[in-house]
Structures are given as C-alpha cells and as structure tokens.
Computed example of a mutant assay.
Amino acid sequence: MIAADKAGGEPGPGEAARARLTVVSGPSGVGKSSVLAELRRLEPDVFFSVSVTTRPPREGEVDGYHYHFVDRPAFEAMIEEGAFLEHAEFAGNCYGTPRQPVEEALDAGRPAVLEIEIQGARQVRAAMPDARLVMLVPPSWEDLVGRLTGRGTEATDALRSRLTVAAEELSAAEEFDSCVVNTDVRSAAEELLTLVSGRAVS
C-alpha cells in the first residue's frame, strides 16, 4: 500500500513533467536493498546515486560502482566545496551523496533514487526541497522483529540496540511524503516505481 503522496503537485497547462529525486529510507531489516535491486531490474533507466566514502574497499567492491573511495582530506575538501547533498560519519568513516551526478541525471530527465538513512534524508530535503521522501516499512512491528532475530548473527545487546533504532526510525514516518509497505519485494518495488517514475508497471 502507498500512503498519499504529499510532495509536489501535477504540472500545470503547458508544463512538462519534471524528473524528481526520490529518497528511500527505512529501518534495518526492512528489505531496502532487495526492493531497490528489483526496482533497478524493473526500470534500468532510473539513476541510482553512488555514495562517496572514506572507508577502504571490501573484497569484491568496485570503485565507482559500489562506492567512490576517497581519503579523508579529499572528502573534507568536497564538504568545503558544497559537493554533497548530505554527508555523515559512522564508525570512524565518512559517507556522502555527491550532488553533481544527481543533478545531471535530473536535468537529463532521468528520475534519481538515493538509499540513505533518515538523518541523511532530512539533509537532502533541506538541500533539495522538491525531493520526494519515501519510507519503506514492514507489514508490522512483529514482522520486522522476526526478520532481525531470524538472522541469528548478532548478540542480544546489539539486536536490542538495532530494534531501538528501528523503532525511532519508524516513528519518523510522518516526516515522509509516502510509505511503501514491504509485504512482498516485487510488489513493493512496483509501488516504489510508480512513485519514482509516475507510471504503473504493466
């Protein structure tokens, strides 16, 4: 189900529909990566932003595809230049969304998608007020708890902390323009595509 979209409106007479940036957020375990991978498969023309990070590449990661890998001085210089739509630091590493590729995609008429956490979504809304914010949510709190506990990869304290953060993130849903419930990956991706591109999946 898609909540009513509160951002923007229909183009006026003689106005062309304009490509828009869509920011997708949601709690850990809700399935963002799976849904966005399906969205990419359904509509290859959608532009997916590649973040910049100061952390070293992991095995199998490709520079320019998974991330743009830079050192901290280069990242700080990009901050000074205003090159980011949003940026943050986690666990000693910096991450940011470069502004120029997103704006170039939108100028070319390609809808663009960012997958970032809620604080970053707020920064993007401040930098680009026309951006549409979409929260991917679970069918229920019990479903999300089941997904996280079903992983069996985290200690009890870490899991409790993750659930606390998830509850805080879900409580911010009213700040978002739309919510997509991830009951099924394919259905959620199709609903997200309708928001991103303005057309239904045939």
Rank of each mutant, 00 (worst) to 15 (best):
K6M: 06
A7H: 06
G8Y: 11
G9I: 02
E10Y: 09
E10P: 12
G14K: 06
A16G: 10
A17N: 06
R18M: 07
A19Y: 06
V23A: 03
V24M: 08
V30G: 01
K32S: 05
S34L: 04
V35Y: 00
V35R: 00
L36A: 02
L42T: 12
P44V: 13
F47P: 13
V50N: 08
V50G: 07
S51W: 07
T54S: 07
R58Q: 15
E59W: 02
Y67R: 04
D71S: 10
D71K: 04
R72A: 14
M78S: 14
I79M: 11
F84G: 01
F84S: 05
F84W: 06
F84A: 04
E86A: 15
E86P: 01
E89V: 13
N93H: 14
C94M: 11
Y95L: 06
Y95N: 01
G96E: 03
R99F: 07
R99Q: 13
E103F: 13
E103D: 14
E104F: 08
D107F: 01
G109Y: 09
A112Y: 01
V113Q: 04
V113C: 06
L114P: 00
Q119R: 08
R125Y: 02
R125D: 03
V134S: 03
M135D: 01
S140F: 07
W141Q: 03
D143F: 10
L148A: 01
G150T: 09
T153S: 09
L159H: 05
V165G: 01
V165K: 08
E168R: 13
S171I: 03
S171K: 11
A172P: 00
A173F: 04
D177S: 03
D177R: 02
C179F: 07
T183Y: 11
T183R: 13
A188Y: 02
A188M: 10
A189K: 04
E190L: 14
E190D: 15
T194F: 15
T194Q: 15
V196P: 06
S197Q: 09
S197E: 14
G198N: 12
G198Y: 08
A200C: 06
